[in-house]
Design a protein around this nucleic acid. Sequence first.
DNA 1: CTCATCTTTAGATGAATGTCAAATTGTATG
DNA 2: CATACAATTTGACATTCATCTAAAGATGAG
Lengths: 125, 125
Amino acid sequence: MLSTLPVVIATTPACCAPLGERSHDPEANAIEIATRLKALADPSRVRIVQDLACCEDHEITTTDAAAFLEVSEATANHHLKRLQRAAIVSPRRDAQRVYYRLNLDVLRQLGAVLQVKCCADCHCA
Amino acid sequence: MLSTLPVVIATTPACCAPLGERSHDPEANAIEIATRLKALADPSRVRIVQDLACCEDHEITTTDAAAFLEVSEATANHHLKRLQRAAIVSPRRDAQRVYYRLNLDVLRQLGAVLQVKCCADCHCA
DNA sequence: CTCATCTTTAGATGAATGTCAAATTGTATG
DNA sequence: CATACAATTTGACATTCATCTAAAGATGAG
């Protein structure tokens, strides 16, 4: 289970790309980033996140997600758990139902990792 | 082979999340985004991109990548091709060598997709 | 042309994963 | 407690994929 706000993603490097912290352990850092990206790299999970970012109350249950994705509840639950393990969503129990909600900060930080800025003197586009 | 600048990612929606265009075909759009994320969602490929964003000349060859990742050249080439198919890198041939270079705009746009902004009246963090 | 180097492809293999049906657990209500 | 509904787990299955070795292409040097 990944932490909600990993240091490796939060820090900003010196030169070009903010693709996570490179100074400490590049290997571990790359695994961390890849793990989070993998959690998002599936059409069903992208749609869940899209819906969560836009829907009325910004929450979704396993049953709702199953109907939304037109998939079994076991599958919907699998995807929600996958997102949860990457700290992209968090669960909230209310009676029988479990509502999942986006962790916007985590999503934004993951996005920030891809906002590569190159140094002034390089030939990058 | 994905196009270099897909419309689906370039456009900006109305309300909350800019997780790609949702108005046209949500299903196809989600597949598009997930496909690109998948191309990046591997530790070796993250390290390649990290290196490309920072290294001296912002280019890398199959042989260099193999040494850098400590992996066979076939494997390194596989990863570079995967990134190329997602338009994240582009090849440039010079004599025997093929130099791969980042498409910064594609990377930035993919990152922008995750920069979820919620509407003022919602309860998101 | 022949050799050396770099790149790419082909085929094989093991691990991860998306999906489902079925069974199990959790929670509330009669 | 018994029933109903929601969530989760389990086990199976097919697919994808990271990796390797071996072989084949591509390109320049002698």
